[in-house]
């Protein structure tokens, strides 16, 4: 699974568990409705489907193709560095010298 199945199961169960009483409080269903226990099961299924589908976040195919095959650094750290590291300014050269003198 590309997503987060444990989060999906736990959050989906809680979502279904809370949705039943909420619908009852708003007068949509009865207190004795079977939806009270069906909705938590549906929530678990929904959470697992979301984890399997994983429509959010950057896809792994978006990464550049010329990346080295073996990367020893942790992926999170390398990603952060590549995104946040500023381009180094030129330290020497005739142009910079002229600007400082004038």
């Amino acid at each position: 699974m590309k997503g987060r199945p444990i989060l999906g199961v736990v959050a989906g169960f809680l979502f279904g568990l809370l949705l039943g009483p909420t619908l009852w409080l708003w007068g949509v269903i009865e207190l004795a409705s079977p939806l009270m226990w069906i909705l938590p099961i549906v929530g678990i299924v929904l959470g697992l489907l979301m984890a399997a589908w994983a429509p959010f976040g950057m896809d792994s195919t978006d990464e550049p193709a010329d990346e080295p095959a073996v990367d020893t650094a942790p992926p999170a750290r390398s990603d952060a560095l590549s995104e946040t590291a500023p381009e180094a300014p030129p330290t020497s050269g005739p142009d910079s010298k002229d600007e400082s003198s004038s």
């Binding site: 987060r4 199945p5 989060l7 999906g8 959050a11 809680l14 979502f15 959010f56």
Partner: peptide, 13 residues
């Protein structure tokens, strides 16, 4: 809880 369920669809790194 619904937002957390949707968050399960976030790709892992």
């Amino acid at each position: 809880a619904g937002a957390a369920t949707l968050a399960a669809g976030t790709k892992r790194k």
